[in-house]
């Protein structure tokens, strides 16, 4: 293809996106669009399956049968999200095994929030309420993103996430209304998860390298700082409602901007965790690698068995 032809295709492509048309797997797309989408969708898929670990940590110790069943179902939903996000990613010409390889080698990233430990039951409530809450704010705009398979996957993901968020809030509410010990447990969890949740909305606009391009392709509709503001404005009244205190002395309603002012985020901590120095980076990655390596003989057996069955069918057909 000549340079002029490519340029022409690119123009048609950008026009289609501007008209809100969906790009489908077989459509022509610029290489950079494909690569950016593989990066983002796979990061998202990895986050779902790594995210199973901190919550899975409490399934066997959940305090009631009802909570145990709900938590199991939630973690299972995340496995399901992982599954269809990997499938969406595969439509861009990369295999699930390659994506796992990138995760296991540390080349691909996942959401840093899952590198924090779940040390009490209240952390399960805090994750649902805050982490899923922040995730929804990040993800709702993706339901109308330009890449068709991703947008469709996100519609389903978002429905389930908002259910998880309500469930998490309900855990926190129950604790906050409970004994002093339970309330303290809830407050402690909020103290530990609040700032990392704010970091989930990404670096400040000034630091964010992908924002401009992502806005153009509708991978983003709002900037990180706008999303963060939305998250804070939505969450502060919820904390007040259940009598918990947001751990930020500088938090104050700003009448003029119609939103809260808030304290400084410790971006050093954020970058340290991104670089692999969070409290559980090593544990999360080794749990994934371990499951994969220990499961190899099982996957091999399934492949070998399927092949034998196919050969048998072929022989019978002859």
């Amino acid at each position: 293809m000549s340079e002029k032809e490519v340029k022409n295709l690119e123009e048609i492509f950008e026009q289609r996106i501007a008209r809100d048309e969906k790009i489908e797997p077989k459509d022509w797309m610029p290489e950079k669009y494909r690569k950016t989408h593989i990066r983002q969708i796979s990061q998202h898929a990895h986050s779902e399956i790594v995210g199973m670990l901190p919550e899975g940590n409490w399934i066997t110790r959940a305090p009631s049968l009802r909570r145990k069943v709900a938590l199991l179902a939630k973690v299972q939903d995340e496995a399901g999200h992982g599954l269809y996000l990997y499938s969406a990613c595969e439509t861009l010409g990369v295999s699930r095994d390659e994506l796992y390889e990138q995760l296991h080698s540390g080349k691909a990233k996942y959401s840093s929030i899952f590198n924090y430990p779940t040390i009490t039951w209240a952390d399960i409530g805090a994750i649902g309420w805050l982490v899923d809450g922040a995730a929804i704010i990040n993800q709702v705009p993706l339901c109308s993103t330009s890449y068709g398979p991703y947008a469709r996957a996100m519609i389903r993901v978002c429905k389930e996430e908002s259910f998880h968020q309500r469930q998490g809030f309900e855990i926190m509410m129950t604790l906050a209304k409970g004994t002093p010990e339970q309330k303290a447990m809830a407050q402690d969890a909020l103290n530990r998860w609040w700032w990392p949740s704010l970091m989930m909305l990404g670096p400040t606009d000034a630091e964010s390298v992908h924002t401009a391009q992502s806005m153009k392709w509708k991978l983003k509709r709002k900037t990180n700082d706008e999303l963060r503001q939305q998250f804070i404005d939505q969450t502060v009244p919820q904390a007040e409602l259940i009598g918990l205190t947001i751990p930020d002395e500088d938090l104050k309603w700003n009448e003029e901007k119609g939103g809260y002012d808030f304290g400084e985020i410790d971006w050093d901590e954020f970058w340290q965790v991104v670089k692999g120095h969070g409290p559980c980076n090593k544990e999360r990655l080794s749990a994934r690698v371990n499951a994969w390596e220990k499961g190899e003989w099982v996957r091999d057996a399934a492949m070998a068995y399927a092949k034998k069955q196919e050969d048998k069918k072929l022989r019978e057909a002859i």
């Binding site: 399956i49 199973m52 670990l53 899975g56 399934i59 066997t60 049968l65 145990k68 069943v69 199991l72 179902a73 973690v75 299972q76 496995a79 399901g80 992982g82 599954l83 990997y86 749990a287 371990n290 499951a291 220990k294 499961g295 190899e296 099982v298 996957r299």
Partner: peptide
């Protein structure tokens, strides 16, 4: 079975084992 959640040999078996655990706990 719920000890296995997130640690299975593949996402598909993870989901299936969790399903069974959910049925049994129900």
């Amino acid at each position: 079975l719920s000890e296995l959640c997130g640690h299975g040999p593949s996402l598909e078996t993870d989901i299936a084992c969790t399903n069974i655990a959910l049925d049994l706990l129900g």
